[in-house]
């Protein structure tokens, strides 16, 4: 079985803080990490590999330093790592990104494509289903768990607002994974040592077959017209008092608001 996992390097947004004076994001020194949902998806793939034997490839689109997460994936146990990197791919919205990744996937053999549900820097959850459409694959999103019957059928526990669904789909298929469903393994010591000697293939525009008008900034239907820091709200009243007095202040406010 061949599994391709699409992963992304993202700034750890939980480490981003707000400058209380300027109201801007402080991004200096924010670490880059493998996107958590992607890492969950990678763990799904590695568990299938442990149980049934599989050839697991990771692919990422990004700048040269995105190689770091491919090395991390090697240390976790993948067999092949590909970095899709070219200035022509840059500035892409989700649709243009999905076309580029789909073009790369067409060069690979896969029975299963796994992506994270969404990346924490954009939170769109769009690229996975868009890749599935380009490749004419059935999709199952929000996967909390992923099982295989050893033959051709995957069983996915798909989370939704009301509970979950159990969904079966035959290979080839695309699944988007939730980080909350699985605890990713740690990198093995041997894996870490070996990861630096393993080859990371770098694919550029010439490595894939794709119409340049459909990718990158020029191939993106959506554009950012403007971005702005969220307006800061006028600060409310702050009291530093004994608990008894605090309770009286809250009660007074609840009465004022007709809660009680």
């Amino acid at each position: 079985m061949n599994i391709v996992v699409c992963i992304k390097q993202v700034p750890d947004t939980t480490e981003i803080k707000l400058d209380p004076v300027k109201g801007t994001l402080i991004r200096d020194g924010v670490p880059s990490i493998m996107n958590p949902d992607d890492k969950g998806g990678l763990e799904f793939a590695l568990r299938l590999k442990d149980k049934y034997g599989a050839n697991v490839t990771v692919i990422t689109m990004g700048p040269p330093q995105a190689e770091e997460i491919l090395r991390e994936a090697y240390a976790m146990g993948v067999d092949r790592a590909i970095l899709l990197s070219d200035r022509k791919f840059g500035g892409a919205d989700t649709l243009a990104t999905s076309r580029t990744i789909a073009a790369a996937l067409r060069k690979l053999d896969y029975d299963l494509v796994i992506t994270g549900r969404q990346a924490i820097d954009g939170d769109t959850a769009q690229v996975g289903p868009q890749i599935a459409e380009h490749l004419d694959l059935p999709q199952v999103t929000y996967a909390e768990s992923l099982e295989f019957d050893g033959d051709k059928t995957f069983t996915v526990k798909k989370a939704d607002e009301d509970g979950y669904q159990v969904i079966e789909v035959d290979a080839p298929a695309l699944v988007t994974a939730l980080a909350s469903g699985v605890k990713p393994r740690y990198m093995s010591v041997r894996g870490i040592v070996e990861a630096y000697d393993r080859p990371v293939e770098v694919w550029n525009f010439d490595s894939v077959e794709v119409d340049p008008a459909t990718i990158g900034l020029n191939g993106s239907p959506t554009r950012v017209a403007k971005s702005f820091a969220k307006g800061m709200k006028a600060p409310g009243q702050l009291y530093e008092v004994e608990p008894e007095e605090a309770v009286e202040i809250i009660l007074a406010k609840l009465r004022e608001k007709f809660i009680i």
């Binding site: 989700t94 959850a125 289903p129 993106s220």
Partner: peptide, 20 residues
């Protein structure tokens, strides 16, 4: 979970943008 599954699939099928 439905709109975020359906919207991107359609945006790719139609070839238009989708803002999440």
């Amino acid at each position: 979970t439905i709109g975020r599954d359906l919207g991107p699939r359609l945006s790719a099928r139609v070839g238009t943008g989708l803002t999440a």
